[in-house]
Amino acid sequence: MAEEVLLQVKNATKSFGGVKAVVDVSLSLFKGEILGMIGPNGSGKTTLVNLITGFVKPDSGEVLFKDKRITGLQPHKIANLGITRTFQIMRPYHSLSAFKNLIVPLYSPRVRRSTGGRLGDRDAVAIDILEEIGFERDAYVPYKIASSLPLGYLKRLELARCIAMRPEIIICDEIFSGLSMAEIATMVPLLEKLQMQGTTIMMIEHRLRELFRLVNRVIVLNFGEKLAEGIPEEVIEKPDVREAYLGTEVDNVRD
């Protein structure tokens, strides 16, 4: 595994009123790896993503990207640095057709800069990205209005919107949830391919079996605190992780 630290969270803390969503969490994301983040509902996973991507400002602590402090930057500035995310609750531009959804990231300063201002035909680029991610061009799926797309396509559209940014880091917030095994099976190679191309990925996921097939390392959060970190197989054997996260449902995970 590459050892270069791409993203670092240092002692991040965030409370909403009396609720401590994230407490003193530190983590490092190495270049080129896939990092998994697991934890029970309400353990602060999404808040941590929001802290990294600037949607929420931390009460204390800092986020470093390539050793530069990005804490407190606006979300769009962070996105333009190359950190993109998907949303747990999908946020398509529902009145636009699927490929027009990608015009928005393709219009971002980051992409325009990297293509020297001119991208040529953004529509063609958008359709290529969608086709790669499994939108069948022949069945006219890329041309359908986003509000008419089924869940599986919307999840992929979330990911496609990230890919269109040509990011260095993609943070996937429960991108498998609600998908069938078959749909997940089409997405796993996609993520592996992204990793091969050098993109660093961080995944929040409840589907542990699929997650553990992909990730190099995993971080466990519980009540906003980091409970464990390490190789998936080792982490999951730790008694406190089992107790906190899996509870009595160990059998279900093993099935």
Binding site: T53, F55, Q74, P75, H76, A79, N80, T84, R85, F87, R91, P92, Y93, H94, S95, L96, N101, I103, V104, P105, Y107, S108, P109, R110, V111, R161, A164, M165
Partner: peptide
């Protein structure tokens, strides 16, 4: 139009 549909997603897309 993306802003109208979803400003959070637009922010995440660097807009």
């Amino acid at each position: 139009r993306g802003l109208k549909d979803n400003d959070q997603a637009a922010k995440a897309s660097g807009i």
